[in-house]
Design a protein around this nucleic acid. Structure first.
Length: 418
RNA sequence: GUGGGCGUGGCUCAACGGAUAGAGCAUCGGGUUGUGGCCCCGAAGGCUGUGGGUUCGAUUCCCACCGCUCACCCCA
């Protein structure tokens, strides 16, 4: 029985790698123009980073993390998201001291032990950006803008921005109480799941798909009615700036993030083409998180793009990487002559391949054709005797002979016009 | 963790409970002893996911397990 990859862990095969590069390259470009700098952080952190950062009683921390003791008994976890670890690094290296505003991005795999399905793997990739040091609504905009830009510029059509405000530590408790007491009053009529959620994560009840729960929640109090003046002004300014930019959005009063650190602005970019896991990108404001991780009380806002999901929305890229020159050497003498030439051409940047097997001309030409070679160079006994080798243009079928002399290397390069 | 669907050459899929499990694509070789693609011919490639059961006989029906997948849950 051959060994298979672990459930929920996938190989990214050569035929899909170009799409990955396309996404990553575009993201690098966008981040660069927005003035974000790259940071690379460990895949493993002390479990504490996530339990304190994301929240001890969130599903992610409670039942989805890969947590294990190291050889000395210290509890470690594979990162289930990027923000907590990134802020740990910011704090550890006092990066916030360099400038009042810190703009960072990172990309890489995250790990959550969930049941795999479409758009949900146990190792999945995120492109993540964080903007620290300001509460200004325009910083929310920047982060949303980048996510939107990356997704739209990749050619994804059918996406929608959903946005909401979760309030702040001043107004959220009042709302939470109101929601809780409402949920208590209707407790008997909620589905078992929501009865549990009403205690652990009341906002999540809004997400329930049960008809009865939806009906009940239509009369539930909404955060919007409880937002303090500052939060109201903040979200309004974010929405105004989105309008200025012509980024279409819908206000989703039920939008909730499953991580405890979010306050005020939260958003998702969703696509109906993804199946049940419809969120391509998401993020929000997390003032207070850095403080909770033991750092200074710096506000922040961030976003993460699900690369695997984004990939599901893209047209598959061509995998074939054409080559410039395929060298056919027939026989041992020819092979020996040809190898140093190949080395030179490769150092000059030409994409050159040869057959590793001692096959006939026909077979090697077939191989050259399959590889998409533009030119084929043929060197056999006749050519050695004649001291001229054959250069064949596979597209036009033209063939010509060029002398094997000191000018061979540059002569060929001129001929094939690279 | 719960439920549905599906497991046959590398890939996409056939085969009423019946014979040596087939086809297309891909691979390799030949048709041209040194000229690719198209065409023709041929070769190689299978413990039909695993283990039980029913049957004279199971790829086919039943059960269990494993795997994949979609959905619930949750989230990027």
């Amino acid at each position: 029985m051959a060994i298979r990859a672990v459930r929920g862990f996938k190989d990214i095969l050569p035929q899909e790698i170009r799409s990955w590069h396309r996404i990553e390259d575009l993201a690098y470009g966008v981040f660069n123009t927005f003035g974000f700098k790259e940071i690379r952080i460990p895949l493993v952190e002390k479990t504490e980073v996530f339990s304190r950062g994301i929240g001890e009683y969130t599903d992610i921390v409670e039942k989805e993390m890969y947590t294990f003791p190291d050889r000395k008994g210290l509890s470690l976890s594979l990162r289930p998201e990027a923000t907590a670890g990134l802020l740990r690094a910011v704090n550890e290296h006092r990066l916030y001291a360099q400038s009042p505003i810190l703009k960072l991005f990172t990309m890489g795999p995250m790990f959550r032990h969930e049941r795999p399905q479409k758009g949900r793997l146990r190792q999945f990739y995120q492109i993540d950006a964080e903007l620290l040091g300001t509460k200004a609504p325009l910083s929310d905009l920047e982060v949303i803008w980048m996510a939107w830009d990356i997704i739209v510029r990749l050619g994804v059509k059918n996406v929608r921005l959903e946005i909401n405000s979760l309030g702040c530590p001043r107004c959220r408790p009042g709302y939470r109480d109101a929601l809780k007491s409402y949920l208590e009053s209707v407790f008997q009529d909620l589905c078992p799941n929501c009865q549990r959620r009403s205690k652990t994560n009341p906002l999540r009840v809004f997400d329930c798909k049960e008809k009865s729960c939806r009906e009940i929640m239509k009369n539930a109090p909404l955060m919007r009615q409880y937002l303090c003046p500052e939060c109201t002004e903040h979200i309004n300014k974010v929405l105004e700036s989105l309008e200025v930019l012509d980024i279409p959005f819908v206000i989703n009063p039920y939008l909730v993030r499953g991580l405890d650190y979010y306050v005020m602005t939260t958003f998702e970019i969703v696509s109906p083409d993804l199946g049940a896991q419809s969120t391509v990108a998401a993020g929000g404001r997390y003032d207070g998180l850095l403080r909770d991780l033991g750092g200074p009380d710096l506000p922040g806002v961030g976003m993460a793009i699900g690369v695997d999901r984004l990939l599901l929305l893209l047209e598959a890229d061509e995998e074939t990487l054409p080559i410039d020159l395929f060298v056919v050497a027939l026989g041992l003498t020819a092979r020996k002559k040809v190898i140093p030439w190949i080395g030179t051409w490769r150092r000059h940047g030409l994409r050159v391949q040869m057959s590793y097997e001692d096959r006939g001309l026909k077979s090697q030409l077939r191989q050259a054709n399959r590889l998409g070679a533009h030119y084929v160079l043929i060197l056999g006994e006749d050519e050695i005797k004649e001291e001229r080798l054959i250069v064949r243009d596979m597209k036009t079928h033209d063939q010509q002979k060029i002398p094997i002399d000191n000018n061979l290397i540059s002569g060929l390069e001129n001929l094939i016009d690279m």
